[in-house]
Design a protein around this nucleic acid. Sequence first.
DNA 1: TTCAAAAGTTTGACGACTCAAACTTTGTTG
DNA 2: CAACAAAGTTTGAGTCGTCAAACTTTTGAA
Lengths: 220, 220
Amino acid sequence: MATETVENYIKAIYVLCRESPSGEAGVVRLAQEVDVTKGTATSMIKRLAKLKLVKAPRYSGITLTTMGKKVALDVLRRHRIIETFLVSTLNLDWADVHEEAERLEHALSPRTLDRLDEFLGRPSTDPHGDPIPSASGKVSELRGKALSAYIKGAKVEIVRILDQDRAFLKFVAQSGLKPGVCVTVQALSPEGDSITLQVKRGQSVTLSSSAAAKILARLQ
Amino acid sequence: MATETVENYIKAIYVLCRESPSGEAGVVRLAQEVDVTKGTATSMIKRLAKLKLVKAPRYSGITLTTMGKKVALDVLRRHRIIETFLVSTLNLDWADVHEEAERLEHALSPRTLDRLDEFLGRPSTDPHGDPIPSASGKVSELRGKALSAYIKGAKVEIVRILDQDRAFLKFVAQSGLKPGVCVTVQALSPEGDSITLQVKRGQSVTLSSSAAAKILARLQ
DNA sequence: TTCAAAAGTTTGACGACTCAAACTTTGTTG
DNA sequence: CAACAAAGTTTGAGTCGTCAAACTTTTGAA
């Protein structure tokens, strides 16, 4: 079985591959993500390659093997189920939950995970709107487009927040922009590089377009 | 903060000190408990002594310092709250829960622990009847005597099972001898070294006295 | 096209934790 | 009380994960 550290690297590589247009992860970003020096990341990648979890040609991009993807989705499933539990059962703050799940995800047996999943009613997404991979390792990726892609007057439902940064999440939550919430696009300002949303009658929020790009929504 | 390994050693030392009449733990038993060789245990004890968690004169017994006890009770609190959750909320098997809690106890932040405790209604004992130390590090130790200490005809309530062995717990649970259950001492056989209990009308169980010594009860 | 900066790699070293095996001390018992 | 087993310790070595710093390759801008 993969060690805790190995699982963290694999999960980070998975996320980075999703984010990057080339579908490959880089050593420097990976090192940032798992919070080690790039030398350490390089040597870990060698171990991961030896374990057949990763393909990493010298001086080139990192990709997950089929086995690697399986591990990543398994960790992600654990992570997201735990986050859901922490928010919906223990009422922990939406923004604080990530780090906690980060530690718990490595300590949960398959049996306990399944019981927890059952207890939660087999949710399909976590509190950020991220899809929970199935036990067999399938994910139904995003059903929405970035807020910044909609036109003025569009009525949309927030479905997902693509960022785990605490400050950002705190801001988003404070503005009432959690998944499930419906908003109307009130104004778009390409020059000002911003977007204004009406959340409820009389309450509106203005986001930079880079922030709006990290919030996915779908037409309602 | 104490590492996971350190916490495990401290917890084991605490338990061994309780069990032993001298109030001291030995290296060989400790090594068994944490599943390492005795050489490894010795070198770890040195580290614990350097950390001021343990007093261990050369070739003599191991005892916890005040700080060590604090750590032990903290770990034990986490352990027992988690066990309670696993049994009462997730309905995991009473006997399986120990190993799971063993891993989870190191991954829980104080805040999450408190929320979990609150969710469970601030229980005072875990499913085995072991007392849960308070957040400030106080334990109210056992309120019962071994089953084997009662006389024929005594009506008693089971309060605690002093053993984490899976097979033993499985047997105990199957016999219906969980904490909270009331039983009557039907027969004592000093020669046969056994005790017979009536659990319900028409259902009785016979235990060896060594088994009965590990089950605590109080008069009802 | 060249050449610096960015990305990636290597090296040597360290701390935490472990083992096997040789060794020393303690305590029990014939 | 001698001797021997059990308990405890030491030694030398290995793995995992990490760092700092020197090094090599790639790449993108002048």
